[in-house]
Nucleic acid binder design. Structure first.
Lengths: 344, 344
DNA sequence: TGGCGATGGTCAACCGGTTGACCATCGCCA
DNA sequence: TGGCGATGGTCAACCGGTTGACCATCGCCA
């Protein structure tokens, strides 16, 4: 059954030609008559020949392998970037050697050596977001390297970061398009991504003549709730809130409801991340949010490695849900059920 | 700077010996005098020789590569299994070729062909849990294959599934050890894993003389809340509850608190999964839960591929939190803050 | 003094492709 | 009739290691 796999030599013998001709025909280099091509393809078919990728890589001096160093593959954002990159690379016939560095310097260094030894064609580093700079590994590798979802500490490297500033702008534009004027922002105070979202939001509103006084805390629902309480207790009038992430937005939702405010009638609410732990069937359309488009980011980074200079779009996308879509009141039964589950 | 990498031939020339001797010395096969070994190692050092893994694999006919087919790498449970497997394989010097099949038959088939072409030494399939059988890919591969976090539909294959029955047993034993006697179970009604947890729980309690009438719903917090309401409205007396997962347990917590019950004084609460979306620093010790030990499962599957027959333990682990640990009342400030954030 | 095992090494084939140099044949045109 | 380009193919080196067969030398023992 599992006989030894056919080699180029077997095919050549069966087709009555030289090994080199078979190689050339199968790779579409060199010349051959139609008749000969047919015989070769027949033999390939008959012997179920599949080229030995190991030998092929070796002969070519190219592994057709791309290394991916990811700092935390179980982290949802990184894994989205990874997924986008993998898909693009697979489409280009490149397999990926993935290493979860788990934020261990030792594992990372070890893996870099392994990648260099295997002569990978390129390396993609997927970091843990825009907080801090990623220690460049480019000079320890002799192939092209790109950084996605992080910024290399070597300015000569090419880094792909989500457009957090643009995300803030998009949120602002959406709320403005709804005619809201008393707009608040609940931000996060420690991460660069949050800071950029805040700036994009504030600057866009400022350009439209609206002043916003951001308040910042952490990423938690508790902070969202607390922030809303603080706003209301301070007597701030609000008809729209943009939160730095969805968790904060959920907390804000609770706070607003607790004060008897209707959403979106009284206050429109926008989050960021477009991510929920709940199963997909429950995800649909509750919260208006900004999707950072991370698979597209991974795709863009992969494309840069495959074909540098290719234009790639990975702008954040607005996802409109019932917390801003006026038509669907957030009081219907479906929304209520989702509400309960999101909030618990 | 980036001169051509040194080859075995360069080292041999520098050390004044034959290429084959260098190969043998570096691989610790064959004999050589101490003096010669030293000269060779000196040359390796001086030339910064690192063997070309591509050529090495080719010469040996072994790729030192393991393929991993994962159905959804962004899914938290699968990714835990992946992480455990990767770590073990890396420790054995094997790199991993990971493909996120994304539940597409086409992608999976394509990847299987790629793995076969690259002559991987082994393949690990990581499924999406015990629901349903995984369509075996073993007969399309000429290397050992193992299935983790899923069961192959071919009984001849080796599959590694979490011990859900054991998880239920451990939960029961824990509650019994606390002296609880009026024990309830809030289960899930559609997945095999949940069914096994329920059976393990019920059977263990039955053996101890306690009857339990499980009630089943879905995986949501809303169901946990609803289930508690149903129990209390039915007048069922309860001093302990085991929930099929942590989400249900959080919902149950809310329900119990809403009825004025203290946890763990009045009711001890146990979940399952040991997972929280919240940042790690917030995870600690709130909810008592069963950890399915998925990295160990991945580790065990990887070990089976590397060295079949090795004993491996991946039993679920009890993680005691403040919802059953009597000493620490669940009313202190830290718990309260966590409570708010977990529940929102 | 001859034989033998241990020591320390070399030689050459092999893994399975790829690629550039080269060659024979043929038809066509000058 | 000679020269030339196009056509269709072969030959041999190469990629960079691994591995078994073989060989020379040396010390020791009978």
């Amino acid at each position: 059954m599992a006989r030894k796999a056919a080699t180029l030599a077997d095919v050549a013998a069966a087709a009555g030609v030289s090994v080199s001709l078979v190689s050339k025909v199968l790779n579409n280099t060199g010349r051959a008559s139609e008749e000969t091509r047919r015989r070769i393809h027949d033999a390939v078919e008959r012997l179920d020949f599949r080229p030995n990728a190991l030998a092929k890589s070796f002969a070519r001096g190219r592994s057709e392998l791309v290394g991916i160093i990811i700092e935390d593959a179980s982290e949802i954002f990184s894994s989205m970037v990874l997924r986008g990159a993998e898909r693009r690379l697979a489409a280009a016939g490149l397999a990926t050697l993935v290493c979860d560095a788990a934020e261990s310097d030792q594992r990372r260094a070890q893996f870099v050596r392994a990648l260099e030894a295997r002569h990978v064609d390129a390396v993609l580093v997927i970091g843990s977001g825009p907080a801090g700079l990623y220690p460049s590994v480019s000079d320890r590798l002799s192939c092209p390297v790109a950084y996605a979802f992080c910024e290399s500490d070597n300015p000569a490297d090419v880094s792909f970061l989500p457009d957090d500033h643009g995300a803030g702008r998009i949120a602002a534009e959406h709320l403005l398009s709804l005619g809201r004027t008393k707009i608040a922002h609940i931000g996060e105070g420690s991460e660069r991504g949050a800071e950029l979202r805040t700036r994009g939001f504030v600057e866009t509103l400022a350009a439209a003549g609206h002043a916003v006084e951001p308040i910042v805390g952490d990423w938690s629902k508790a902070w969202g709730l607390q922030a809303v309480n603080r706003l209301i207790e301070a007597g701030t009038e609000v008809d729209a809130i943009f939160c730095a992430n969805d968790f904060i937005a959920y907390g804000a939702y609770v706070g607003l409801r607790a004060h008897g405010l209707r959403i979106p009638e009284d206050v429109a609410l926008v989050g960021h991340d477009h991510f929920s732990m709940d199963p997909p069937q429950r995800r649909s359309g509750f919260l208006t949010t900004i999707d950072p488009n991370l698979p597209a980011l991974g795709d863009a980074a992969a494309r840069h490695l495959i074909a540098p200079g290719t234009a790639a779009d990975f702008a954040p996308k607005l996802v409109v849900g019932r917390t801003t879509a006026g038509g669907q009141a957030a009081g219907d039964l479906a929304t209520l059920l989702e509400f309960i589950d999101q909030l618990l």
